[in-house]
């Protein structure tokens, strides 16, 4: 059973089409990256998965069912802009929001204590939300998102505004959740996080699918015919290399269409050169993102 299945979903607002015939799926136990520039339709897509918005057409299936009250209990949602009841105490906030996910008070309190301990926040459990720092508030909101043990987690920019310590903490907790078989959707601008954490991605722009699939495959697809090389001594002429760019500590060789990196490596070894670095240049997700978004713009 898939955690999420989105089929040909369309959603328009008065002045524009926010999501245009979008289809994708997310498997259980998968960390899925939803990326795209501002206004691409990421948040609208998420809101349709959370049943906050209804699609104009198309279908969203969550954990094998159309959204209903019991599937809502299996969802955890961390919206991009955060807020909790300012005057309410941390523990009361967590327990109330967990109760709306069908968890009884006793279990919610127990689980909340466990998560507060795990995040080092238990000292603040009787504080009011307004007394917490922004980063602490964000951790509490993360706890609210996972306290009811959801099967599907959707996190919109979860790392925004977190310091490095809390970022590591959150990454660790997400990795644990994934090990437990939860499906996690990360929507973010931070491409390095996606590269670091996600198995598969969907890149959207103007509400449409731009790139979708396994991250490794996508990167391989965008792998150019370039090599990163650091050798001792003079490099000289190498057959099949049409250009050379010198960077600090290494150089980038551009191959012609017919030559493969293996041939260049053989050539260098045959010449008896000392090689410190030999790497097939793979574009970063950021580069792919800029390239794709730039193309459509």
């Amino acid at each position: 059973m898939l955690a999420v299945e989105v089929n040909h979903v369309v959603k328009s607002f008065v002045d524009k089409v926010a999501v245009d015939d979008l289809s994708f799926s997310v498997a259980q136990g998968e960390m899925f990256g939803l990326i795209g520039p501002n206004g691409a339709g990421k948040t609208t897509t998420i809101r349709m998965m959370m049943d906050i918005l209804k699609p104009d057409s198309g279908e969203v299936t969550i954990l094998g069912e159309k959204l209903n009250e019991s599937t809502k209990n299996k969802l955890g949602y961390l919206p991009e802009e955060r807020g909790l009841y300012k005057k309410l105490k941390v523990m009361d906030s967590i327990v109330y929001l967990a109760s709306l996910k069908g968890v009884d008070r006793h279990s919610a309190t127990e689980k909340a204590n466990e998560l507060l301990n795990q995040t080092g926040m238990s000292a603040g459990k009787n504080k009011k939300i307004e007394e917490l720092s922004r980063g602490m508030g964000q951790i509490i909101q993360f706890i609210v998102t996972i306290v009811h043990d959801p099967q599907l987690l959707v996190m919109d920019e979860p790392f925004a505004g977190l310091d490095p310590v809390n970022t590591e903490l959150l990454k660790g907790m997400l990795a644990d959740l994934r090990k437990q078989g939860k499906a996690i959707i990360l929507s973010t601008h931070q491409m390095n996080r996606v590269e670091e954490l996600c198995d598969r991605i969907l890149m959207i722009n103007n509400g449409q699918n731009v790139l979708y699939g396994d991250l490794g495959e996508i990167k391989a697809r965008y792998r150019g015919n370039a090599l990163l090389l650091d050798v001792e001594g003079e490099l000289g002429e190498i057959p099949g290399v049409t250009g050379k760019r010198v960077h600090k500590g290494y150089m980038e060789l551009i191959l012609d269409g017919k030559t493969i990196p293996q041939q260049v490596l053989t050539h260098l070894i045959n010449r008896g050169m000392v090689i410190n670095r030999f790497e097939v240049a793979t574009p970063s997700l950021n580069e792919i993102f800029l390239k794709e978004v730039g193309k459509k713009a």
Partner: peptide, 15 residues
């Protein structure tokens, strides 16, 4: 307040 703090989205993902 719930709209301004976006808490409304969390609430509506539950009810």
């Amino acid at each position: 307040d719930e709209k301004e703090s976006r808490l409304i989205e969390v609430l509506l993902s539950s009810v």
